[in-house]
Write a protein that binds this DNA or RNA. Structure first.
Lengths: 216, 216
DNA sequence: AGCCCTGATTGATCCAGGTCAACGCATCCG
DNA sequence: CGGATGCGTTGACCTGGATCAATCAGGGCT
């Protein structure tokens, strides 16, 4: 159930975890809440976001099965976490996890590796937000989801979009209209085929990879 | 010289470090290079950036004395590091650092804390890049520099801009013209006073904080 | 001193993506 | 079954910031 853990760690960790479930759109915690737990997604997807004073929102990441969230050395969560779909997670109390870290130094190493991976993803996202066009953003996003499905051993072909257009916009720094229009134009250009509103077939993935990296 | 380290770590680390110096604009390493060293800035400032295929650039961070760079679990650097000013750093060979990590589990914990701090900063930057206006970006940037100077115990008042307008633009997802125009309009509005091209006095810092957080 | 050379500023114009508005299309519910 | 409600799409128009194009201001060199 807590798939992403190394076997030797798993044994000790199962003692302190609790399974939790959440319905779609339910919040898991809010930015500024005391960070009492760390979570691992086991099923469904979660979005993480930050808000500006006037309501503008930036989604900093979507979490899928195997991903950790709530990692923070500080005492407060720095973003809000909200269920995109119905989700199942396992929850680790930070206090107990800290005790475990004392006894099991390898755990810190593992958490460091996870944090570094997130950091690499965050830097890619900065490049996307700061310097890519709407089309490049959408294509990069679709490829990121496709890679995620691959990594988790799921079927790659119809890329699944569990989140709303609003969420996609708030992740890519675009409006919902631009998201919709860009998907339509990719569809008209034959680069993708939509199956309903939440499944996408990528045609010529190699060419899409080039668009995302802005190879001229 | 390697200020930012805890005393008990410092003792063991000094054995494996080498001091290095770099002139302004000299590259320290390139994205894709084998990640053989970790660095700690002791003097001056460094910029980290990623490039798209056609030359568009996103600076993912500026590093100042006390900051670490080159941290990566993978074998390759994921960004290019280049001196903004003349810099002094201390360099740790990754191989030796890894050996030290085996013997000194607290080191992983410390690196984890550093990585988490960077992650928090990265998420703030995503919010900035995705959802803030040019003015909010510039104001946020000036405040970030001011806080950095405070944190390092430097004089706060004239905020120092060691980097070029191009660098500021590539960090904030703007063009140099927009950076220049926005600084001019802040100056005309009396929010800042420029002293030459690389020193800024912030007036009404509290009001600037509100602009950066988009309090309406 | 005078002369480049490089980076910053300012002005004029343009356009990618935002905004505003209408409409389509499910799903839900009385 | 009809009306409402909530996404998503599409169209028309607008605008913040990009682009293109002159200057301008040091700072180093002879």
């Amino acid at each position: 159930m807590c798939g992403a853990l190394a076997p030797e760690e798993l044994h000790q960790l199962v003692d302190i975890l609790t399974d939790v479930e959440l319905s779609a759109h339910a919040p898991l915690f809010h930015e500024g809440d005391p960070a009492e737990h760390v979570f691992n997604v086991t099923r469904g997807s979660i979005k993480l976001y930050k808000l500006l004073g006037d309501g503008r929102r930036q989604i900093t990441g979507f979490m899928f099965p195997g991903d950790f969230l709530g990692l923070a050395v500080n005492s407060e969560y720095v973003y809000t976490a909200e269920a995109v779909t119905d989700v199942k997670l396992c929850r680790f109390p930070r206090r107990k996890l800290d005790v475990l870290r004392e006894r099991m130094p390898k755990l810190d190493r593992r958490l460091l590796a996870l944090a570094m991976d997130e950091l690499v993803a965050a830097q890619d996202q900065m490049l996307l937000l700061g310097r890519k066009t709407a089309e490049e953003k959408i294509v990069s996003f679709l490829l990121m989801l496709a890679r995620g499905q691959e990594r988790r051993g799921e079927k790659v072909d119809p890329v699944h979009l569990p989140m709303s257009r609003t969420d996609i916009g708030d992740y890519l720094g675009l409006t919902i209209e631009t998201v919709s229009r860009t998907l339509s134009s990719l569809r008209k250009a034959g680069a993708i085929v939509m199956e309903g509103t939440d499944r996408v077939h990528l045609k010529h993935r190699d060419r899409l990879e080039e668009v995302a990296a802005a190879m001229t």
